[in-house]
Design a protein around this nucleic acid. Sequence first.
RNA 1: AGAGAGGUGGCCGAGUGGUCGAAGGCGCACGCCUGGAAAGCGUGUAUUCCGUCAACGCGGAAUCGAGGGUUCGAAUCCCUUCCUCUCUGCCA
Length: 423
Amino acid sequence: MLSLNYIRENKHTILAGLEKRQFKPLSIIDEIIALDQKRREQKNELDNILAQANQKAKEIGMLFKQGKAEEANELKAATVAFKEKSKTLQESLQQTTAALHDLRTQIPNIPHDLVPNGTSEKDNKIVFTEGEIPKLADDALPHWELASQYGLIDFELGSKITGAGFPVYKGKGARLQRALINYFLDKNTAAGYEEMQVPHLVNADSGFGTGQLPDKEGQMYRVPEDDLFLIPTAEVPLTNLYRNQLLQAKELPICLTGYTPCFRREAGSYGAHVRGLNRLHQFDKVEIVRIEEPQNASAALEEMVNHVKGLLADLQMPYRILRLCAGDLGFTAALTYDFEIFSTTQNRWLEISSVSTFNSFQAERLQLRYKNKQEKKQLVHTLNGSALALPRVVAGLLENCQSPKGIKIPDVLVPYTGFEWIN
RNA sequence: AGAGAGGUGGCCGAGUGGUCGAAGGCGCACGCCUGGAAAGCGUGUAUUCCGUCAACGCGGAAUCGAGGGUUCGAAUCCCUUCCUCUCUGCCA
């Protein structure tokens, strides 16, 4: 969410940013500025009434103390008008404030200067490519067939107990999941991220804090009985750990990592692209989150990108990095790098990590600030990224590492799996 | 899940209807004292919003878990709700 001060003072920057995103209608900004003006006028009027009412109340108190009950009671009658007036003013001020808040929640983050123009994923810019795409035999199989052939994942069983998109991992398949999670957590903590175990259900305030609510309400599973949401990513609980906080500069940066399952309704998805592990309702992901001083956020983003590069290099996966264009950028992000590994048998790139900086967009919603060197309170910058999301890593790994002898586990994972081959 | 107690500033803790945004203490900052430090002494020390100012500041409003209500006036009384603690129950 953009702060009111920022909107007031940077109207043209904001309009340019929204235009880049093809956001409509742009008139919303003028609407906000006008409403804000109205809010301040109403606030002023109300404050004046309340000041007068407070004054009268004090006088009445004094009179009672001095035993002048009669005079006091006379004054009481004079306060009735204040009371009525302040009540109606208070109500309209509340309405204005709520309307203003509502409008502000509809505005996405302003894209960073580096964000390319564009309307869809076709316009994302490839900024880095690494690794050889392996040449596989003609009879190489897609991961869902390998998973079934080696008894690693049972999609039908998941369908039976829950529904489509909730796979059951079995035997070496389950062990591979656990190995990847542990491997990622170890690498992340070695890089200075503190490991956290967080709840997998969050309340609406948390959903709002990171921007899932109200924007993506339909994408989250909810538990209406208790008014909770299943997390779509560990970003939500991890970042919200610091909601409503005033940090000291020396506490920053805060670097966290955590493994959680992620739950997504994925309403509207269909077709071959959701086959196998490509798109699931429940999947595992290890997330990294950083809370930074604004001036350090760019460097932090680069560090995170490099860290994820390191993970993929270890796994010996061919991958590329995309800088998302304005049209493909998430609602809350200012700049996003997507990591994609190449799925040889599907002949397509699969997104396995998304690393983003949010500037102060989430911090404003979270009310997460710090005291800077000048002792002034300032919103922090938040960043996060997947390091990594499991299913498509598994998909790529199965497909790219297959051979007539079976599937060769990458060396770095062997200490975690306890086996070198799936065969 | 049931019964009881409670939620006050960075922390502890007083405050049951009237100059209370809140005593006192701790902590912290600055100053005095000291060769230096400790101790001691003094001063200061919440946040948000609105207005005003070039700025320091000044004026006003709101905030004692959150939201409503009673009252001329609420930290204090009433209702709702969340959370914490104790006991009982249940349970991986």
